[in-house]
Design a protein around this nucleic acid. Structure first.
Lengths: 231, 231
DNA sequence: GGATGTGAAGTAGTTCACAGCC
DNA sequence: GGCTGTGAACTACTTCACATCC
């Protein structure tokens, strides 16, 4: 790769969370054979203003064409590049219950750049079965090297799994268990919590405020990570 | 009750997305028999500063005690009240694949206030089976009344399901399909997309920026709501 | 003493408005 | 004409610092 760039300086956190949405829109447009899209159209689909879209995309360099909008192919490629999809990442998933299974079988979880390398579970009836083309290994076996560890176990087991992942030198965790985990400095944990979206939706329902209320069409919630910090 | 009720004016969007996190922390504290917690402790667990915690909670009224922090029970209750958990919401889930199953069986998806009333699926081998105590109905049967509809079907089917939910007078949708859906004005759609979290994590890995990188412990992403606007 | 709650200051993000280019 | 890209204005959120109360 003549990898050009890295001129992408620093994108703001809100921008980073919107780029995957724009990319998904671009993919959809491509699939339908459309070639160009403008900032107003992206904005309507993504649930943000056209100006915000242009600001976000301007951060990737001048990728639009004045007077006619953005080429969806270019848009898709540049976003992929900015998000690092041109590098490969190895992903291990721990906990092959309904959720873990849903994730690894979903066509959209393991997007470009992410490569599933191993699955682990504690349940002996699950260990040894084949899921998404991989034999599920026992949680007690040594873990393979990977970049990202995905935790899909019950909350009681989350800390223990996090410890094992860290011990295996995996320092980027995506935690679907509703449980805060402690990790050493230098390890990133992102939390995904379904119920939080539901709760936010309920708040708006209750108050008639925000996304739901006054004439707004829909709200694009995107995900709901949560933070944390270690002891 | 002399409950001072509904003095909760308007909470900011970031605050709303953090409240469920604080509530989860309060629940955990209660379970472990702890009685009080202070803003610094909440902040560490939630991944935000103590000041942010105090600001957020101040919006719910004066619920802390100067000098000693917050009573976890009071904290939990007031957050529940602010988020509208004291009202009941009927929830229907459409699409009982791995994901739908994971959601309805998860102890944390249907939190207080949310009541599962019906499940629907298109697959004849799933229709009629019992999941989470409910008989799965066919997607072709008339839908029951509900407040919130959860979409867990493949992306191709998402629009059609959204249409059916809206036709059944359900105007708050939680969409897990990676597919933007069109709904009439007055209907709220929140999107939850797993892969977006993974992509954000990858971006930070790639750039060493933000949550992962420079000396920060781990990420506190807190949410990523986005607003929207109607067509 | 100790931690909350909050004005005041600072910072980040969004929106406006328009110059620049196709 | 149309739409991008961007300085300037604005708005929203966070952080500081401290008065207030237990």
């Amino acid at each position: 790769m003549a990898t050009p760039r890295l001129r992408t300086r620093k994108l703001s956190e809100p921008t980073i969370s919107r780029l995957p949405v724009y990319q998904r829109i671009a993919e959809g447009w491509m699939r339908r054979g459309m070639v160009r899209i403008d900032s107003r159209q992206i904005g309507e689909l993504a649930g943000v203003t056209a100006t915000t879209v242009r600001r976000d995309l301007a951060g990737l360099g001048s990728i639009g064409t004045r007077g006619s909008g953005y080429d969806v192919k270019v848009l898709n490629d540049r976003i992929a590049e900015a998000l690092g999809h041109d590098r490969d990442y190895d992903v291990v998933v721990v906990g092959i219950g309904n959720l873990g299974r849903a994730l690894v079988n979903s066509s959209n979880f393991l997007i470009r750049g992410a490569r599933l390398v191993a699955l682990y579970d504690a349940d002996p009836t699950i260990v040894g079965t084949i899921v998404a083309g991989h034999v599920v290994a026992s949680i007690n076996e040594p873990m393979v090297a990977a970049t990202v560890g995905v935790i899909c176990v019950p909350p009681e087991a989350a800390q223990q799994v996090a410890d094992r992942l860290v011990a295996a030198d995996i320092h980027a965790l995506l935690n679907f268990a509703p449980q805060v985990v402690n990790v050493p400095l230098g390890t990133a944990v992102h939390y995904v919590d379904f119920s939080i979206e539901l709760q936010i939706l309920m708040y708006h329902l209750n108050n008639g405020t925000g996304p739901l209320g006054g004439g707004l069409l829909h709200s694009l919630g995107i995900a709901t990570p949560s933070p944390l910090r270690g002891s």
